[in-house]
Amino acid sequence: MNSAPVLEVQGLKTVFGTRDFAVHAVNDVSFSLREGELLGVVGESGSGKSVTMMSLLRLLPSPPARIESGRVMFEGQDLVRLDDASLREVRGRGIGFVFQDPMTSLNPVFTVGFQLMEPLRTHLGFDRKAARRRAAELLALVGIPSPEARLDDYPHQFSGGMRQRVMIAIALACNPKVLIADEPTTALDVTIQAQILELVKDLRHKLGMAVVWITHDLGVVAGIADRVMVMYGGQVVESAGVDALYENPTHPYTRALMATLPSLDGTRRDRLMTIAGQPPLLTAPPAACPFAPRCAHVHDRCRMANPPLIEVAPGHAAACWLAAPGEGVQNGV
């Protein structure tokens, strides 16, 4: 697990807007993804998890989106400064992307086979026949029965779970080193989600790729991730190995988030724990801790300065002043 990073993000800042109005969606996000690792990215809507990943590949329309600063190192290149032609090579070939909604991310007027063969022909220079053979292999790989015949079907002839399998097949077409999956199971039912999770667990070992898995579901992450990054207000608030995060959540937001979940197997509480208030609007660059207005342990320092990620144990960091040595959060304050 301690192999070299395949993807390294440093100080990424993405802003949406014009001169008069801005939303600071990604604020100084840094992380690295090691070879073969599965990184879970957890957060609520508006926490910046999707925008961060879209920014990496510059998939956001500009304007209004603007990457203000930061570096995204992939195979020795900085994707933020890469020219369009080289970036096109990285998209699809080096880094595959699976989007949330399988209903809208496939083109309804082309066959699934055509959409699968497109990256093979563009990036790998396959001829029609070879591309078709490989496309059928890919459909078989993601568990679609009679793949050869189904290449000529249109997206509407597939169910939601099957379409998400097709999306994964397309993302895997060129053997990417990194797969970024943006809430790929959120639109699916739990029994279908379980199928997709099994598939990804199986494929990533088979193909040895690194995966970034974006989700709002702490349960999904617990089952598949090696490491987890919790985001709030456009920032990484906690980052840890999966066992450490669930055993010893350190940031008050992570702790609150885990406490609000009703459990399927544990004791049942009379009332659920809640987090008062609303997530921040991010219309200004953060000058204070973004969670301060909702935090049960807030003190003056939180409202004056935005805490950096502070290491609480090897490989486990939290952006909270209370996580600093000598402070109380680790002792359950």
Partner: peptide, 9 residues
Amino acid sequence: AVPIPNPKV
């Protein structure tokens, strides 16, 4: 099929 938020489990 419901994932449980506990990696050990």
